[in-house]
Amino acid sequence: MVAEKDVWNYLEEVFDPEVPVLTVLDLGIVQKVKVVGSSIHVVITPTYTGCPAMQRIEEDIIEKLNEKGDFEVSVDLVLSPAWTTDWISEEGKRKLKEYGIAPPEDEADKSVLFAEQTVVPCPNCDEKDTKMISHFGSTACKAHYQCNSCLEPFDYFKCLR
């Protein structure tokens, strides 16, 4: 019988297919791991309800755990409690920035038109003078920004809570 602790370690090797520097643990989507005999049950929560990566992540978890041993693996998707970007680990936020995606900032999604402050530091030069180009980006979890200082356009992992 495998220890739950080991399963958590195995999950460190499962990456988000759309932001491949983050593991599912960095992302904070794994809610629970339960081991009974040779069966492993993993509970995950979706980032966005329509995120097409979720199905892929389910399959990747099953594949990874099957690689590690002769287990019967099941993955359940639960909606509650609803995922928030607060669950992304500090390590995950560091990896995002290194990858060129600005990590979620408190209150950063308030918009210019509603006269609210935007502070998303540029992942390239750390300058705070940046502007939102679009509320939506290449995936459901991102918005599009540009740095006014170095002019680099960049993805911002938008704050969801």
């Binding site: 966005y48 329509g50 995120c51 097409p52 679009s134 459901a140």
Partner: peptide, 14 residues
């Protein structure tokens, strides 16, 4: 274009 398809994805997910 990207925004509306993102929105669409959220709704179909719901």
């Amino acid at each position: 274009d990207i925004a509306m398809t993102n929105l669409s994805l959220d709704f179909i997910g719901q």
